[in-house]
Simulated scan of single mutants.
Amino acid sequence: MAAFGSVFMPEMAMAQFDGSAWDAATIVPANSISLHPGAHVLHYASTCFEGLKAFRHEDGSVAIFRMDKNIARMLQSSELLSLPKFDPALLSQMIIDIVRHYAADVPTPPGSMYIRPTHIGTEPAIGKAATPTLTSMLYVLLSPVGDYFAGGSRALRLLLEDNARCAPHMGMIKSGGNYASALQPTMQAKAKYQADQVLFCPNGDVQETGAANFLLIDGNEIITKALDTSFLHGVTRDTILTLARDLGMTVSERELTVEELLERAAKPGTEAALSGTAAVLAPVGTLIYQGKEIKVGTGEPGATTAKLRQALNDIQWGKAEDRHGWLTKI
């Protein structure tokens, strides 16, 4: 089976900003992008993106999950990167149009159609290191996918790292540079400790991994870092916390120190998980810190993690009531 996100539909939705106005969005071949080698994005990383999914329901219909939330975050990322503003209605229509175009290709559960809206600065200007791009491009790629982690429900191994994933003021922006800065530490952790991911904990503050938010589950309480500018405000994180409250759990959004994490992790019944659009909710079984391995609870996938993941999947797959209005039917 092809690696997650490596298969693309042959066409995409695209719109361009010429410095004064956006043109009409069109569906074009996915290899249509033509960039000047001096394009702002290639030199000064004026780029942000989103990740969301469309799901096929048993009646054959297709629904996009939490599209409005992802568009709002992309508008925020664009603003913080000083990229040209766009009307959220433009991106909404682009997403709907391209998903509708390939509705017949949306996989059945547990597969889905991964949607990747992207915004890049296109102005050819290598003298603008401290000046925003005047022109830009929005496009929406589609990729039919299965499970993100090849290991399935296997509990993951995380290396606790004292450094930050990215510059603190950039954390809430979903930009490629943040992922690039996490790549080398992650590769080193895999080689040295056979870790699946790095959990970044600058100054002992438990934040996030390179591509997912971190959740600690202690009995009926779910603990995760309160939102600030230093880390990504995950849509799946928000979804899981909402579902946890619906199930009567106590949700604590606050500072979580490495010391407290390790102390709680060793207790019987404790669970930990990573949340993200691609990963959904992946169980964490082992924490690696200062050369020592600490099992989270039993070290195996936990029942509460599985229950929360199933509650989310049931809404995405149309098997449970969409009480929060998260689905956009197309």
Rank of each mutant, 00 (worst) to 15 (best):
R237F: 07
L232R: 01
N213E: 06
V198H: 06
I222M: 12
P185K: 00
P202M: 02
G234Y: 00
M187V: 12
V258E: 07
I223C: 11
G204S: 07
E221P: 05
A189E: 00
K225W: 07
Q207Y: 04
A191W: 12
L287Q: 06
N178G: 09
S230F: 01
T186G: 15
L243A: 03
L183T: 12
G285R: 05
S230Y: 01
K267P: 11
P283C: 09
D238C: 05
N203A: 13
E253N: 04
D246I: 02
E208G: 09
N213Q: 09
A282I: 12
R254A: 08
P268E: 00
V206N: 04
V235K: 05
S181A: 15
T277G: 01
V251F: 01
R254E: 04
T286Q: 07
C201V: 07
A191Y: 10
E208F: 01
E208P: 11
E263S: 11
A272R: 08
G210L: 03
Q184Y: 10
A273H: 09
Q188A: 15
S181N: 13
L262I: 09
T186K: 04
T250V: 14
I222H: 13
A211C: 14
R237C: 05
P268F: 00
R254D: 13
C201I: 04
A212F: 03
L216S: 05
S275L: 11
T224D: 12
M187Y: 07
A244T: 08
